[in-house]
């Protein structure tokens, strides 16, 4: 009588799978009774909420609660840290922020640094977003062609995205400082040094440039994905129709890429408005307040100034938050419409 179990690869594989499943089974068994208990308490219809609970707790602790605390702070005044010590002032902080004699002239505002921050952020976002989309689009179009070493270039353009913003800023600072790499190059070819961080226009230029350099790869990737989603057949049909290349771009590529471009626009707007770390490390907001953005204003007001004005910083945060909320709603609407061209 022959009775033996053969260790064929198939049985070994299934045995390995059994072993691998053991910890999972353990966890399941551990979770079994609390889940049954939960279902007995809330009923089957309530179970989705039980599963959502961990995330809700996390979101509530780190997003909703701080938001509420921040809003509460924005209604108080004084230098005290703990909210129970702070006097309630109502909308005074908001009033202070928006107290301008002439809404069109920033210098007539009582808190002109806030408005300067908004103005700087606006300028930055306008140039950064528009140029970044343009460059990302051009880069994606080139990377979508059958060029040599395409994979290599695709990675090269994406690498800066992987760097920490502080590292990016430090690298560029090293290049742009008075005795930096770029000035060394300029002097070596007989030109004069340029004090990039002393001239407000240059400082803003480099803030925009470095920010584009650091983030472009991400948006290029989104646009590239959009380009690749356009069926090749359409281009061949256009080719059979004798469509000139520019007309193919304007009449076929661009309209079909439009949903992706909208996503890129809104995402980069949101990120642009939030810009802080790169530019703070690169220029420190200077010269003067030439590159001081709204987030830096909030940071300075709340934490870095001699007199820490938590209430005012909290109020400014609420204003910024409202702007971001509007942009996010736009993004959601855009993303939802993306399905139906």
């Amino acid at each position: 009588m022959v009775d033996q179990t053969l260790d064929t690869p198939a049985t070994l594989k299934s045995r390995a799978a059994e072993w691998a499943a053991l910890p999972v089974r353990g966890v399941m068994r551990l979770l079994d009774w609390p889940m049954r208990l939960a279902q007995r308490i809330v009923g089957l219809g309530g179970m989705p909420y039980v599963f959502l609970l961990p995330n809700l707790i996390f979101f509530g602790t780190f997003v909703i609660t701080p938001l509420i605390i921040n809003f509460a702070f924005s209604l108080t005044g004084g230098p005290e840290l703990f909210i129970e010590d702070r006097p309630f002032v109502g909308g005074e902080q908001y009033g202070f922020l928006f107290d301008c004699e002439n809404a069109l002239n920033v210098s007539t505002c009582r808190e002109d640094r806030f408005w300067r921050g908004i103005y700087n952020t606006g300028t930055f976002v306008f140039f950064q977003v528009s140029l970044m989309i343009l460059f990302s689009l051009i880069t994606a179009l080139v990377l979508n062609m059958k060029i040599r070493a395409r994979g290599f270039f695709r990675s090269v353009f994406f690498f800066p995205v992987l760097l920490s913003p502080v590292v990016v800023a430090l690298i560029w600072k090293w290049i742009l400082l008075r005795d930096g790499l770029l000035n060394a190059f300029l002097t070596s070819i007989g030109l004069e040094k340029i004090l990039f961080f002393v001239d407000p226009t240059w400082a803003m230029f480099w803030a925009v440039f470095v920010s584009i350099w650091a983030h472009m790869g991400f948006y290029t990737l989104i646009i590239l994905a959009g380009l690749q989603a356009i069926p090749q057949d359409l281009y061949e049909a256009a080719q059979m129709d004798g469509t000139p290349r520019m007309r193919v771009f304007w009449r076929i590529t661009l309209p079909l890429l439009w949903p992706n471009l909208l996503v890129v626009l809104v995402l980069s707007l949101i990120k642009g408005v939030q810009t802080f770390d790169e530019v703070y490390v690169l220029t420190g907001g200077g010269p003067g307040t030439a590159t001081q953005f709204i987030v830096q204003y909030i940071y300075n007001t709340g934490f870095s100034n001699q007199v820490q004005n938590f209430g005012l910083a909290a109020a400014a945060s609420m204003v910024l938050g409202t702007v971001l909320l509007v942009l996010t709603v736009i993004q959601l609407v855009v993303a939802r419409r993306k399905g139906g061209i």
Binding site: D233, L234, A237, L256, I341
Partner: peptide, 12 residues
């Protein structure tokens, strides 16, 4: 003139 398998109509 060619008729494609996927029709290749411009969706927009």
């Amino acid at each position: 003139a060619m008729v494609f398998q996927s029709y290749a109509l411009y969706p927009h």
